[in-house]
Design a protein around this nucleic acid. Sequence first.
DNA 1: TCAAAAGTGTTGCGATTACACCCATGC
DNA 2: GCATGGGTGTAATCGCAACACTTTTGA
Lengths: 255, 255
Amino acid sequence: MSPYDPSAYPPFAVTVDLVVLTVRRHALCALVVRRGEPPFQGRWALPGGFVRADEDLGAAAARELAEETGLCAHDPGDPAPAPGAGAHLEQLATYGDPERDPRMRVVSVAHLALAPDLPAPRPGGDANSVRWAPVEELLSPEAGFGGDEPPVPLAFDHARILADGVERARSKIEYSSLATAFCPPEFTVGELRRVYEAVWGVALDPRNFHRKVTGTPGFLVPAGGTTTRQGGRPAQLFRAGGATLLNPPMLRPEV
Amino acid sequence: MSPYDPSAYPPFAVTVDLVVLTVRRHALCALVVRRGEPPFQGRWALPGGFVRADEDLGAAAARELAEETGLCAHDPGDPAPAPGAGAHLEQLATYGDPERDPRMRVVSVAHLALAPDLPAPRPGGDANSVRWAPVEELLSPEAGFGGDEPPVPLAFDHARILADGVERARSKIEYSSLATAFCPPEFTVGELRRVYEAVWGVALDPRNFHRKVTGTPGFLVPAGGTTTRQGGRPAQLFRAGGATLLNPPMLRPEV
DNA sequence: TCAAAAGTGTTGCGATTACACCCATGC
DNA sequence: GCATGGGTGTAATCGCAACACTTTTGA
């Protein structure tokens, strides 16, 4: 095969799709957008778009994330993260079934983003076409899709991609400090615990959880103040420490 | 953007590259091929090739693996694995830096394959252009590259891909039964231990290792016989059990 | 007989669990 | 006062590291 002959290899379209997760009202939620055109017109789908001609895959994902949420992606390998509200962003997996898009051959490089609960709606998107939906409803449509939404599955193979992203997040918070990516810059131990409980769908012992996270060097650093925004006794505020790997890991209770 | 207009999105070439690992002579080794044409002519590279127009990504990786090694890939999700010598095959990550191939825009979906030590050289490849090389030499060229090889780095970004694949293998044998993919169909506990020692580059206590693996339900099932091929007292032969996840995991000693 | 590899028993230690219990605030 | 969530103390238990020790072969 001549390496310079474009006809010697088949051309592909390459896209990035985003699994953007957050924790809202004690539930793990994903960002979905309503499709305005065929195929799957009117159905919900993961945000995404084409990779540009001279754009790296991670840069394309960060650009799509900023367009949809206004978040600045924080690449874990980047020594100087962008200013402003940050989100964790990492490559998830690549999906290239020849039949996955009926229009043409599309290979999609899915990325996983973890974001804190955003108080304001996303800028640059109108409320009818983008929303946070609990992943449980997105992955089990028969469970109901909120009040006013019909229980239809996600477009394309996005249910599979979302399931893979959720599974990645569930396992990764076990052995890394990634759960702090779901929290605001300053947070309490209780708020961090509620993140674990929402992502795993289990209840954790608050006392043992507190000892575990405060006793792991580099996981949390005191921010200095306290807050009563959760009610009860004032809780210390913490910031995420420098450690990325948790050793020993946080143990996920048996099913 | 009109979804049907080919000029609306840039065309990419999509390839699969393979990180094929095995354990030979107590060292973790990777399969590399010598490039016969520019760019990087004469340099070693990971095996790989273009994805065909109607081929799934995993199928392309399995095809390339069979072409290079004669191994039948065993997709972990496949309920009826192909007959013959099997190898574990899974997607690793996707590399799409615009500058990674000087000829054109190439997105490469790297896959990781784990194979037992193959007694015969690979069929369909001549010995001068394909070889097993210790990953330590491939990733640290100054350490020497065997007797007759100059210490040159791998072509393209393949050193990075190889490092990612090695890291995936090292962490995955911690919490899964994947180490058995490096062993022949029937193997002893000592042989399995030497796999862990080679992949991690550490020494493990034979007594505690034995208790650990034989005490984990579903990890190993007795094959019935014994062997003295490692010398010393005859050792029981085992086959890989059905379990894929190890809980609690095998603990990797501190560096 | 000796070296080498396979196994078993035992002890101490560190981490996790499942609690009892106290603390500080808003209402 | 009382409910609510925050935080500390403690004892039972589990799993692992670090050995001593026995078994079974080949040379």
